[in-house]
Design a protein around this nucleic acid. Sequence first.
RNA 1: UCCGGCGUAGCUCAAUGGCAGAGCGGGUGACUGUUAAUCACUAGGUUGUAGGUUCGAGUCCUACCGCCGGAGCCA
Length: 431
Amino acid sequence: MAIDIKVQDVARYEGQEVTIKGWLYNKRSSGKLRFLLVRDGSATIQCVVFKGAVSEEVFENATALTQESSLTVTGTVARDDRSKIGYEIQVSDLSVVQIAHEYPITKKEHGVDFLMDHRHLWLRSSKQHALIRIRHEVIRAAREFFDMRDFTLMDAPIFTPNAAEGTSTLFETDYFERKAYLTQSGQLYGEAGAMAFGNIYCFGPTFRAEKSKTRRHLTEFWMIEPEMAYCDLDQDMVVAEEFVTHIVKSVLKNRRPELETLERDISKLEKIEAPFPRLHYDEAVEILKKNGVDFEYGDDFGATDETTISEQFDRPVIVHHYPAEVKAFYMKRDPETPQFALAMDMLAPEGYGEIIGGSQREDDYEVLLQRVKEHNLPEEAFAWYLDLRKYGSVPHAGFGLGIERTVAWISGIRHIRETIPFPRTMTRLYP
RNA sequence: UCCGGCGUAGCUCAAUGGCAGAGCGGGUGACUGUUAAUCACUAGGUUGUAGGUUCGAGUCCUACCGCCGGAGCCA
């Protein structure tokens, strides 16, 4: 009796009769032979149908199979040096589940728009398969990191009544005759969690209505955001660099074949080790000046500035102490140099840009109230947030890591849209 | 929102202002070891839309639509 197996486990069944359930990835033929490349989601294996070894009906069925038809195959696992995975299956029986219609994605090249229109099918191809599995590992490792350190998972709401940093980039929705906005960040709620549990993290989708059309932007992206009570900026940076190191090491350990499928230069990832270089804003500006960049002191860094800075290092770099003027209202100012915020950004190497943004939060009630007013934010909407400073306020800090940018960097792919199953951009809402 | 590029067969692309083509995919057939198999035959077109210039427009001009890349903003 044949055993049901997953293709990835095929080596354990050499010489045995097995059954695999999958889809036809490709088919080649030569006279009385049919070579069926069958994928089952775990891996792909070549199944050889020889006319003399099967019934006439089975051979006819094998001949009639179209690309992506679903089928089950029974046969003997045999070692074969010509196979990329070392094994193939000599077919004894085969049954067709469904003959696929003409499959739109062919073995030849396709344009991005066409592939994105067929994203639901494109996910079956080897490169997309590898990317989604690396994404899974990044998320698994990220949660593992905080779980191991006894952080409590406390997710933030998606519908929010107000904005953390201005309303211009918010998606507005109808909420029973009121307005609600899709969240841009779980952070403010995370701060409530930190005061309740000490250390928490939240993980979920966030939404930005920015009219950005670059390879680093999505309108819907996933963010993991720890928030820690009794934590200052220095401790925040230590957690951030250990966190990113853990994620990279996990992907190297558990998803090496996928990195190879993507032809990632693995040696670059092997250099990622905490501590990361840290630059005060002033030092980062110095680097820009040295490289002849035209930069106005006091501004935030643009995309090309970030690339110039990160190119100086072979691992992620943390820039801290940004001018308070360009940063969010909730960030605490450095008591010794109040023109700077206790903020930090982590820039990924190889020009992948900012993957982490974080800060120590303002913990003084009067100062925070003043900031809310200065930024013309509705005071009543932030009453609950201000409460956190009235009832046992403590120094606290946190950060957010963008999953898709992290996956893009680790995978070495150019565009962020392939790092999420169904990307949402300014121009893409289908499928 | 601004700047730049592209739009021709199901897909990827050709075509000096002068007969609209190839490869892949589809169909039919050949082949006992193929690796994006190969070979032969075959079907497949309102050249993004609307105007304009011209004897003649896929090609030149104008507008619009769609997509791509970048800037700003950000993770």
